[in-house]
Write a protein that binds this DNA or RNA. Structure first.
Lengths: 123, 123
DNA sequence: ACACACCGTTTACATGCGTAATCGATGATG
DNA sequence: CATCATCGATTACGCATGTAAACGGTGTGT
C-alpha cells in the first residue's frame, strides 16, 4: 500500500469516526480541525481512492465514501514504524521515555497499571 | 525548527551514536542501513546544517559534524506527535494497542512491569 | 609550479504533498 | 427545453524530499 499522508489521514479520521459520508459532509466534519476548501478535500479523497484506502458508492448524483483501510491497521503500522525507528522496535523503552520525561496523568498511570497487571507473568 | 525528514534522520542516528564524524565516516557508518552515494549524504548534511540540526567544525580540509539537535528532543517530539495524532495524546491507549495486537516479548513485559511499578501510586 | 585528488557547495530532477481553481457532465428548475 | 447549480475529475503550482551529478577551490605529491 502506498503510504497515507498527513493531510489524507485527517480525512481518514473523519471516515473512521463515521461513514459512509459524502464529500460535503466530510468537509463539514473536518471544519473544526482543518480550514480546507471543498476542492482540497476532493483532491484528498481522490488520492485516497487511488491508494485504495477508501471506497465510494454512488448515491444519486454524489458519492458516499467509506474507509477500506482499517484504522487498527493504520494505527499499528504507524506505531510499529515509530518503535522500530526510535526504540529498537520495543515498547518498554518508549514507556520508559515517557515516564521519564512526560507528565503521565494519574489517569494514564492507573490505566497502565491495570493493563500491565493483565499481562502474563513470565517464567 | 524545521522538521527533520526520514532520510535526514538516518544521518542523525549515526551522529547520535558517535560524533564528531567526517562526511566519509558517516557514509561508512550508514553503509549497512542505506545504500547511499557519498553525494547523497553530503546533500543531507547540508540540509541538516541549514536546519540547524547539526554543526560542523573544520578539521584540516574537511569538516567534522556533530548533532546540535538532541536525540531526546527529537524522540520526544516524534513520540508525542504520534500519541497526539492517534491515541488522544495519552500513553495508555498505545500500550493497550500493543498488548492487544502485538507480541510483547517476555523481556518487554518484564521491563514494563518494572517501569510501571516505579510509578507513583495514585490516591 | 602543476596536475590531481578530495572536499564542500551548487545545481538537478522526478515524485509526493498541500492547497486549490477550473472543467465537464448531469440533474434540478423555471 | 434552456439555464443553472452541483459533483466528481482534471489540471495547477510551489515547496519538500530522495537521490545524485557537476562545479570549484585548495592541499598534495612530483
Amino acid at each position: 500500500m502506498m503510504p497515507i499522508s498527513e493531510a489524507e489521514s485527517a480525512v481518514m479520521q473523519v471516515l473512521w469516526a463515521r461513514h459512509p459520508l459524502s464529500a460535503e459532509e466530510i468537509v463539514t466534519a473536518l471544519g473544526d480541525a482543518r480550514q480546507w476548501q471543498e476542492a482540497t478535500v476532493k483532491t484528498l479523497l481522490n488520492r485516497l481512492l487511488n491508494k485504495g484506502a477508501v471506497g465510494a458508492v454512488k448515491e444519486g448524483r454524489r458519492y458516499l465514501y467509506s474507509p477500506l483501510l482499517q484504522r487498527e491497521a493504520y494505527v499499528h503500522e504507524q506505531s510499529k514504524d515509530l518503535l522500530d525507528r526510535l526504540f529498537g522496535g520495543r515498547l518498554a523503552p518508549l514507556v520508559a521515555h515517557f515516564s521519564a520525561h512526560e507528565t503521565l496523568s494519574p489517569r494514564d498511570i492507573a490505566e497502565l497499571k491495570r493493563l500491565i497487571a493483565e499481562l502474563p507473568d513470565e517464567r
